[in-house]
Design a protein around this nucleic acid. Structure first.
Lengths: 153, 153
DNA sequence: GTGTAATAGTTGTGTTTGTAACTAACAAGC
DNA sequence: GCTTGTTAGTTACAAACACAACTATTACAC
């Protein structure tokens, strides 16, 4: 065991990202869970509809990088809570447009403000340009697709 | 909807971190899944034992920030695959020490090298000090505990 | 038109997770 | 000694997930 050529588990980027993601979501998660009985995917759908207005499930899935079954179930729950409504598209009847209700919008507004303050608390001890740089790097990593076969030497 | 006072979902740090974490884990995940039939928690336990030698479940849970039930199940699977062995502590018979077998160590070695190359690929287009800075920031975020009540204005 | 393929969304299945309750062993107070 | 509390690890059950199969609708070829 121990001490191998310059590889440290705790410096491994996917590991670090996971730890940071989980730690940084924890307190916020509690808010939408305990306060609105929402799960992560429901929160995400709510936020997408709140931020970008009327969308279809596929559009949300594309933007949020979520599988459509997750969207489907999240939408069902949000609908049951009267946070959103579905409307069939007239010209293509496979499609349904999702939109927040007043209740849904109110929940979004409240959570949006909390998220905003929460985000500021997270970067509180970073210089503004440091935080901006971090976000840019993360956005790039979120896009990056490492295709590598990762085999042999 | 749309355009609210300087808050953008796609700039929200927990969201960005989640997206980056998932994207950056994807290809590596496939390796330990398809090649070793391991799940994320099993990989983590394997790596901890490989990097730090003999450990107890609680020690791993502490370091990896994982609940002990996850460790328990991961250990059971790794043991079934003969990747590790358990030894009861003589003086405190509640405790069991976990250690990789030859097979486990070989799997770890192979995955460790893959992880190393994978990590390098991820930061390939970053300046070395940029990558180091990113890791440092992530490590800090992983520690940060936002206690904020997050309530009202 | 008919046949084939693609797309939007849902449902069904086994697996994995989260949470709490549990057993077993130790520790400390008295 | 006994009682109470704590710690290591496992188990049970409900909820959530992944992935494939499904329905319904549109599109495209001919």
């Amino acid at each position: 065991m121990v001490r191998m050529s310059g590889f440290d588990l705790e410096q491994f980027l996917p590991y670090l990202l996971n730890q940071a993601a989980e730690a940084s979501s924890l307190a916020f998660q509690q808010v939408y869970k305990e306060r609105y009985g929402m799960l992560r995917n429901e929160w995400r759908v709510l936020f997408h509809l709140g931020m970008y207005g009327r969308m279809t499930a596929v559009q949300i899935a594309g933007r949020a990088q979520l599988h459509k079954t997750k969207i489907s179930r999240a939408v069902a729950k949000l609908e049951a809570r009267r946070f959103l409504t579905r409307t069939r598209d007239d010209t293509d009847r496979r499609v349904e447009h999702l939109a927040l209700t007043g209740t849904g919008l109110a929940a979004f507004e409240e959570l949006r403000q909390i998220a905003h303050r929460y985000d500021q608390a997270l970067v509180a001890d970073l210089a503004p340009e440091e935080a901006a740089h971090l976000r840019a790097l993360l956005a790039r990593l979120a896009q990056a697709r490492v295709t590598a076969p990762l085999r042999g030497k």
